[in-house]
Each structure stands twice: as structure tokens, then as C-alpha cells.
């Protein structure tokens, strides 16, 4: 069993318009010192997954099922008080927008001190020293002075560093970062990604990074999970997903991205249509209305949900096409077009 082991996780929200299956049967694992990248577009259920692990999903009406094992402890069946005591200590989270995610009325130091003192019975002075120390470790210059600044007095990059300092203050073993660099400038994004990589090595924590940006995933991840319509459609090592992808949606994502590291093509290869709304996921394979190969599998595409099946060595794909068919398409049709880029 992995350090974090999620089995058949379902998070459903009953609404007036019907049942929203934000996460619908997700399984994955992350080891200490390893990074899992969860990739998906808006409405794929990637953020709800992370909130669900921490027990932060909104609304008392949400229906959670499945198992979440953290270091040998099951969390879905655990009491809310117990999950709370783990939050911030054993598992912590970094959010997308550091400005709105920090309280505007408290100094950065006060917020870190608070996070530390929830789980550590220490005096304010000790906690303050720790906060200064943490700010220094995430690369904030003059931490002893900046500890008394308010979030709005920080620049975007500094704020995200402070958020990271806050999340790491209790030395968590699982860190979840939800779009940690989306709100940042590109040069600052690079700094933050470097910082996260270095800190992970230092703290040896399990890291889950959630993003829509394949570039960010490639920078950090050991394993990658591609989500679509609340389900995992492809799951494997970073090499599997980038060099031997087998799901048409993954191909589509790769073809949609203009890339700096290759010669530009005449045209991008977009996926037709838009991501589905979670309230109305297409029947059968959720991707079939946008899939250029849906006709190959006939009625099955619209009537039967394909199983997430292993193709080779822990590489999982959810597709009706046969393994040979998918590999053939990738080698002969998709890869040559992408490679000329």
C-alpha cells in the first residue's frame, strides 16, 4: 500500500438539477518523496478530488464513498474531528490564488504562527521564531522584517512563497498544490516550481500537483493522472503519458498546446467541442462526443463506460479501442504530426 492510497473515491453532490458526479470512482497512490500530477480541464473534478482528500469539499450534502488511506489510516470513515487534527499537520494544501487565500486582516506572520500553534503546543515567541525561519526557507528576503507584513504588501510571488511556508510549517507528509502557479507570471512560476521541487526533496513529502498545464506537470511529476468528466482516463508514469500516451484525450491535450521546444506547426490540433458539464456527463465513454475515433468502436462508445485497464507496467487507459489499435494510431498518426512541431 502506498503512503497515500485512494481507492474508488466518489464525491457526488445532489443539486436541484440532478446529481453532480464531481469525482466518480478515482483510484491512485502516491509514495513519500514522489509527485503525482493530476491534469484536467475545468469541470474535470480535479480540484474536488484534492479538497475531498482533506475533507474540505463544500456542503454537508456531499456524498463521499470509497477509501482514502493515509499512512495506513482510513480517512473517509474517520471522525471529522480526527480528520481536522490531521489537516495542516499531516496533510497540507497550497491554493491557486495566494491573495484571496490569505486573510487580508492578519499579517503573514500571524497566519503562519496560527497554523503552527494549532498542532504544536508552543509559546507565541517560539512559533514566531519558527515563522521567520520558514519564511527564510522559502526564499523571502529579510524574513524577520517581512513576518509583520500583510499579504497585500507582498508581491504575487512572495505571497505564494508565504502560502508555501504556511503549508509546510508543521512539516506535512502529504502536500497538495492546486494550480499553485496559475496566477503567477512566468518567471515567478519558474521560481516557485524550483522551490517546490527543492522543498519536496528536503521534506521528503508526498506531493500532488493539480493543474491544467501539461508543462507544469512535466516539470515536477513522477506519475501523471489525466482526468476527464470526473473519471481517470489515463494514468501512468510521466514517461508513459508523455511518450506513449494511449488515450485520445491525452493526444488531444498534447496537440492543443503550442510548444516552445519545437518548431511551430502550421496549425494546432485542437479537440472539437467543449468539456462536458459534470451534471450532464455523456453516456458511455464521456469523451465520445469529442473523440475523433469514437466511430471505430461502434455503439459501445455511447452505451458502455470503458474500463480503466492496464496496458503495460502500471500504465492504465480507459478506452474501448484495443491496445494494438491505440498504439498503432499513436505511432503512425499522432506522434509523427506532433513530432514535426
Amino acid at each position: 500500500m502506498s503512503f497515500l492510497d485512494v481507492k474508488d473515491l466518489k464525491i457526488h453532490f445532489p443539486t436541484d438539477d440532478g446529481l453532480v458526479k464531481s469525482v466518480d470512482g478515482l483510484s491512485f497512490g502516491v509514495e513519500r518523496g514522489k509527485t503525482l500530477g493530476i491534469v484536467g480541464e475545468s469541470g474535470s473534478g480535479k480540484s474536488v478530488t484534492s479538497l475531498g482528500i482533506l475533507g474540505l469539499h463544500k456542503g454537508g450534502r456531499a456524498r463521499l464513498s470509497g477509501e482514502i488511506w493515509l499512512d495506513g489510516e482510513e480517512l473517509i470513515g474517520a471522525s471529522t474531528e480526527h480528520v481536522r487534527s490531521l489537516r495542516g499537520k499531516k496533510m497540507a494544501m497550497i491554493f491557486q490564488d495566494p491573495l484571496s487565500s490569505m486573510h487580508p486582516y492578519y499579517t503573514v506572520g500571524q497566519q503562519i504562527i496560527e497554523a503552527y500553534r494549532i498542532h504544536n503546543d508552543v509559546s507565541k515567541q517560539v512559533a514566531r521564531k519558527h515563522a521567520v525561519d520558514m519564511l527564510g526557507r522559502v526564499g523571502i528576503p529579510e524574513p524577520a522584517r517581512r513576518v509583520d507584513s500583510y499579504p497585500h504588501e507582498f508581491s504575487g510571488g512572495m505571497r505564494q512563497r508565504a502560502m508555501i511556508a504556511m503549508a509546510l510549517s508543521c512539516d506535512p507528509e502529504l502536500l497538495i498544490a492546486d494550480e499553485p502557479t496559475t496566477a503567477l507570471d512566468v518567471t515567478v512560476q519558474a521560481q516557485i516550481l524550483d522551490l517546490m521541487r527543492d522543498l519536496q526533496r528536503e521534506f521528503n513529502s508526498a506531493l500532488i500537483i493539480i493543474t491544467h498545464d501539461l508543462g507544469v506537470v512535466a516539470e515536477l511529476s513522477d506519475d501523471i493522472l489525466v482526468m476527464y468528466g470526473g473519471k481517470c482516463v489515463e494514468y501512468g508514469s510521466a514517461e508513459d503519458v508523455f511518450y506513449r500516451p494511449e488515450h485520445p484525450y491525452t493526444w488531444g491535450l498534447l496537440g492543443s498546446m503550442p510548444r516552445l521546444d519545437r518548431e511551430p506547426t502550421e496549425r494546432l490540433l485542437p479537440i472539437k467541442g467543449s468539456p462536458p458539464s459534470l451534471i450532464n456527463v455523456p453516456p458511455g465513454c464521456a469523451f465520445h462526443p469529442r473523440c475523433p475515433y469514437a466511430e471505430r468502436t461502434g455503439d459501445k462508445a455511447t452505451t458502455e463506460v470503458p474500463a480503466l485497464a492496464e496496458t503495460e507496467g502500471g500504465h492504465l487507459v480507459r478506452c474501448h479501442m484495443s491496445r494494438e489499435e491505440r498504439r498503432g494510431l499513436w505511432e503512425n498518426e499522432i506522434k509523427p504530426v506532433l513530432e514535426t512541431q
Partner: peptide
Amino acid sequence: GEDYIRTARAKGLRERQVVVKHGLRA
């Protein structure tokens, strides 16, 4: 519904403190 309330919860703060220290203050 603000993001910083979610952050406060993610720190492991007890709900009462989330409400009083973070919610009510604002």
C-alpha cells in the same frame, strides 16, 4: 465562501475558530 476561510480550515483550525477569528472579523 471566501478562499481564506478554506485556507483556515486547511490549516486544521477548529470550526469555531474559523468562524470567529476568520469569518466574523471580516
